[in-house]
Design a protein around this nucleic acid. Structure first.
Lengths: 227, 227
DNA sequence: GACCGTAAGGTGGTATACCATATGATTGCA
DNA sequence: TGCAATCATATGGTATACCACCTTACGGTC
């Protein structure tokens, strides 16, 4: 049932609901650290801050709850989920499994078009590293992996990874900002890209694993250092 | 609020929140096939069937939407997510990765208590196989894996697997009911249990992989044969 | 100082109203 | 008759008011 009305005069209006906007706002607020782990999410306060009604806020909270960014305590209400090293460690391990598999699959099926898109993404990534713009870097990293996952046709794994990344996003932002990471990061990415362009699945998987071991190590030092 | 207790979808008020009950009811309705893939979820109809207000239904839908069991189409509203073999295949592959890793980790750390719990779960599983009670079998299988994941301290991976299982639950119910599976299933499980009791990580991982390859194969034949 | 009652603030839940849009039926005009 | 405009209905999205219940903090009483 694909109806793509090219000659439709109507403006393609995105039809983003308020709810989606609020979900995105709140997700960003949690990611950016504006809402800290453990903070209570008081419905009516959020209504005021966001300028929307309770319905919208409550539904957005339910969505984020299912995503794992928010947890609702019985008889107390929703709070921002807290992240400890135990949780982060598990997430990095899951990412290691899924991303290594995706990179290997991508290396197996990558044709010229995929390689070109990947190299573009890598170039954007390196450019973002140069600019030292955190949000650009974040977006570029996401793009790079998205190319890998989608071209490997691992779109459900990509969903999983994105959701997990939401839960460690503060951490990712921190690791991306770390000097150490700023040096080793692009090198890892370049190796991953090279392995895929060589259609070398095992090398690609290994490069991904190395990257994530490093990232997890930086995350650990950040999390275990005094709050 | 009229109360006609003959309606079997009507939820029983209790200590947990209405929202959670509704989420569970709807999840079960989707899993059991009462709501089929592609079916529209009309809010006001659900309100009548469940005997709750729109707010509760809408929040439950948001939760299931984030879980991937429901998707909301623009200008049309929520529908039950459809499952094709491509999606199911990916989910089985992700499960293969996560469950193999969890089984290996469990085998590494399993002490007498863990082994006892695992053997208990296996016994319950085999008993459920004998009874040929689908829902018991389903629950027993879940319990068995839960012991593995929780004792390996892979609770986030367990969350992920549970959510993914929700999306292929109809399929799981079918595979569990298949005779073929009824024969090979417990054998696989017994091998997994034995490997863990031997503290043999690689053997445990391999047993899990074999189990899932079989399950995926059965699922494929079920999905690709016209209903 | 301990205890109890009350008030405030919060969530959970419900009912209702309003608007925008999609869809199908109906009506009216050529 | 046929087509088009219009109307009605269904439905989702949003806002608002209200109630019940729980928790917490405060303050008064013993």
């Amino acid at each position: 049932m694909d109806q793509t009305p090219e000659n439709d005069l109507r403006i393609a209006h995105s039809h983003t609901t308020l709810r989606e906007l609020v979900v995105e706002k709140m997700r960003q607020a949690i990611i950016s650290g504006r809402f800290d782990g453990g903070d209570r999410l008081v419905e009516r306060t959020l209504c005021d801050q966001l300028g929307v009604s309770r319905s919208v806020v409550r539904e957005a909270i339910r969505y984020l709850e299912a995503e794992g960014l928010v947890e609702t305590l019985a008889r107390s209400g929703p709070v921002v989920a807290k992240l400890d090293w135990n949780g982060a460690r598990q997430i990095y391990e899951i990412r290691r499994l899924l991303e290594a598999e995706a990179a290997a699959a991508c290396a197996r099926v990558a044709d010229a078009a995929v390689k070109a898109r990947l190299c573009d993404a890598l170039a954007a990534l390196e450019s973002a590293f140069q600019d030292a713009a955190p949000h650009k870097l974040y977006a570029a990293t996401t793009d790079f992996y998205q190319v890998i996952f989608t071209s490997a046709r691992h779109n459900i794994a990509w969903e999983v990874v994105q959701r997990l990344n939401g839960r460690i996003s503060r951490l990712r932002a921190l690791t991306l900002a770390t000097t150490n990471r700023r040096v080793s990061g692009p090198a890892h990415m370049a190796r991953i890209c090279a392995a895929i362009c060589d259609n070398a699945p095992e090398a690609a998987a290994e490069a991904v694993r190395n990257h994530l071991v490093d990232a997890a190590e930086i995350a650990r030092t950040l999390l275990e250092s005094p709050p």
